[in-house]
Amino acid sequence: MKLARTDKIVLTGAAGLVGQNLIVELKSQGYSNLVAIDKHAHNLEILRRLHPDVTVVPGDLAEHGEWETTFRGAACVVQLHAQITGKFPEEFIRNNEQATRLVLDACRRDAVPYLVHISSSVVNSVADDDYTNTKKAQEKLVVDSGLAHCVLRPTLMFGWFDPKHLGWLSRFMEKVPVFPIPGHGRYMRQPLYERDFCRCIVKCIETQPAGAIYDVCGDTRVDYVDIIHTIKRAKGLKTWVVHIPYGLFRLLLQIYALFSSKPPFTADQLKALTAGDEFTGVDTAKTFGVNQTPFEQAIRESYCDPRYAHIVLER
């Protein structure tokens, strides 16, 4: 089914990192009938302020509610909601599995013709944690749903609005005279620029590949320590980058988590960082017609762009 620019597109978890960037991209390509569902009041307010023309629907997807009525007449649903960090397994089960069951039920009830599901590269990972396990379960729910769909599995993402990951590291580096690196820091990453990924999502919305699963990676392989130096260079910072023993770094994260309900970087994420995963993704230029932005340019756009670089979501 070929979509018109006025067809209704519903985004779940729309106030999060991918959702905020995707709305910018969809609007830039002329899509005008967008419905954004999320439960995070602060981040929804940011979305309302930036996009008064978007229909904003507050709703907890893990509970039945008025949000379920928004799927009527939708030409496509983009499923973005996910619990990424947290201290308790129940949070991940509730927001990655239970919420997805209710969304899929609503899609079937209203005969939504197509679903784009945003999974994660962690489903291919050697990591064994609550996020990885519930993202695997979430993806299986979609594949077994009976709905026409495709699945995209992005690697670590960065870009506008980022409250975690490289965005948090960028802001932390501005505030401290010394920036710690765990161990030698030579942990290979394949960071994916949000704007590039969102262009891939839009192509899937338009072409509606049947049952396709795409691993989408940043096409630059770069060590963690070099990412830090690239951010430092792009922002013109004088921060001293120092290496500390891995065990000490992990202990400090564990201590910090005792006093923070939403730690920006957890011991599990440190373990995933150093796990040695290397992902093989599709050629985004051939598959989606998306030539990826050079890494250093993408870092500058993410953290120096006057339009959105100063806007940070809450975790």
Rank of each mutant, 00 (worst) to 15 (best):
L253T: 06
V142P: 03
I213L: 13
K271P: 03
C76K: 01
V18E: 07
K286P: 05
C204Y: 01
V123D: 08
Y187S: 04
F172V: 10
C198V: 03
Q190D: 09
H81W: 04
A212T: 12
L102Y: 13
T70S: 13
P245V: 07
R5Q: 14
Q208P: 05
V103P: 01
P263F: 09
P89R: 09
Q98P: 00
R108Q: 14
T132S: 15
T220R: 09
V282H: 07
Q138E: 15
T85K: 14
A75C: 02
I244T: 13
L44V: 01
V241A: 07
V178E: 08
F197T: 00
H184C: 11
R186M: 12
L44G: 01
L80W: 06
Q79V: 13
T155M: 10
W168C: 04
F288Y: 02
V151G: 07
P191D: 05
P163D: 03
M173E: 02
T55K: 15
L11Q: 00
Y187T: 01
T230Y: 12
I228C: 11
A106W: 02
A210Y: 12
K203V: 10
P177F: 08
N133D: 11
A272Y: 12
L44K: 00
K39R: 15
I46C: 01
A257D: 12
A257C: 07
V143M: 14
N291Q: 15
D110Q: 15
P180A: 09
T287W: 02
S125H: 07
L273Y: 08
E139S: 09
Q29W: 04
L258W: 12
L102M: 13
D144W: 07
N291H: 13
V202C: 08
K140M: 12
V24W: 11
S145N: 11
Y256W: 13
H117L: 04
L17N: 12
